[in-house]
Amino acid sequence: MGMRIGLGFDSHAFKADVPLVIGGLKIDHPEGLAGHSDGDLLLHAITDALLGAVSAGDIGTFFPPTDPKWKGTDSTVFLKTALEEVALAGYKIVNLDCVLIMHRPKIVPIAEKMRERVADLLGIDMKDVSLKGKTLKVFRRMAPR
């Protein structure tokens, strides 16, 4: 059996009055992420990467945002389904490398705890999980004078 690689991506806007959850961790922050579920963009991206690696569709295929039963759902439920699909296809996770693109909160102070949580959810060693925080620099195009 060969090796499969999946790529996942997710983004959510910040929203007041909801908890911030990233990587299965509740993070102290004045705003959370808007979403039909808990808005955990890291677990959503990992879920999509796993499903994509075994050609099983995407998170919306399994958990349509139009279905009210998924409203507010803990994203670990989605990840567990993706892990089941990976196992059904006869594969296992070897390692994970993720980049979180966000200005706030800063990832470095919570990266180790987040890596530990993600590794635990995936059933792999923490040394096989890499998480990096980056900020997105937006440049305005200037018209010539």
Rank of each mutant, 00 (worst) to 15 (best):
M1K: 11
G2I: 09
G2K: 15
M3L: 03
R4S: 09
I5H: 07
D10P: 01
H12K: 12
H12Q: 14
F14S: 06
K15M: 05
A16K: 13
P19Y: 01
V21S: 03
I22Q: 06
I22E: 02
G23K: 01
G24M: 00
G24V: 00
G24Q: 00
L25Q: 12
L25S: 10
K26H: 05
I27R: 00
H29I: 00
P30F: 04
E31W: 11
E31L: 13
G32Q: 06
G32S: 09
G32D: 07
G35R: 08
H36L: 04
H36A: 12
D38C: 09
G39D: 01
D40N: 05
D40V: 02
L43F: 12
L43H: 09
H44M: 12
A45L: 04
A45N: 12
I46K: 04
T47P: 14
T47D: 05
D48Q: 12
D48Y: 08
D48T: 14
D48R: 09
A49E: 03
A49D: 02
A49K: 10
A49H: 04
A49T: 09
L50K: 07
G52K: 01
G52R: 12
A53V: 12
A53C: 08
V54R: 10
V54S: 04
A56C: 03
A56H: 13
D58E: 14
T61C: 10
F62K: 08
F63M: 03
F63W: 01
P64Y: 00
P64F: 00
P68N: 11
W70A: 04
W70I: 11
K71Q: 13
K71E: 04
K71Y: 08
G72P: 12
G72K: 11
D74L: 00
D74K: 00
L79G: 02
L79M: 10
L79V: 03
K80T: 10
K80Q: 14
T81L: 15
A82Q: 13
A82K: 08
E85L: 06
V86R: 04
A87E: 14
L88G: 06
L88I: 03
A89T: 05
A89N: 15
A89L: 08
G90T: 04
Y91Q: 10
I93P: 04
I93D: 03
N95D: 10
D97A: 13
D97W: 08
C98G: 06
C98L: 02
V99S: 09
I101V: 15
H103T: 06
H103L: 10
H103G: 08
P105L: 10
I107T: 10
V108C: 01
I110M: 13
I110W: 01
A111R: 15
A111Q: 15
A111M: 13
K113L: 05
K113C: 01
M114V: 13
R115D: 07
E116K: 15
E116F: 04
E116I: 02
E116C: 03
E116V: 01
R117A: 14
V118R: 07
V118K: 09
A119G: 07
D120V: 07
D120H: 11
D120E: 09
L122M: 03
L122T: 06
G123H: 12
I124S: 06
D125R: 11
D125V: 08
D125E: 15
K127T: 15
K127A: 15
G133M: 11
K134T: 11
K137H: 07
V138Y: 06
V138D: 02
R141M: 04
M142D: 06
M142P: 05
M142W: 10
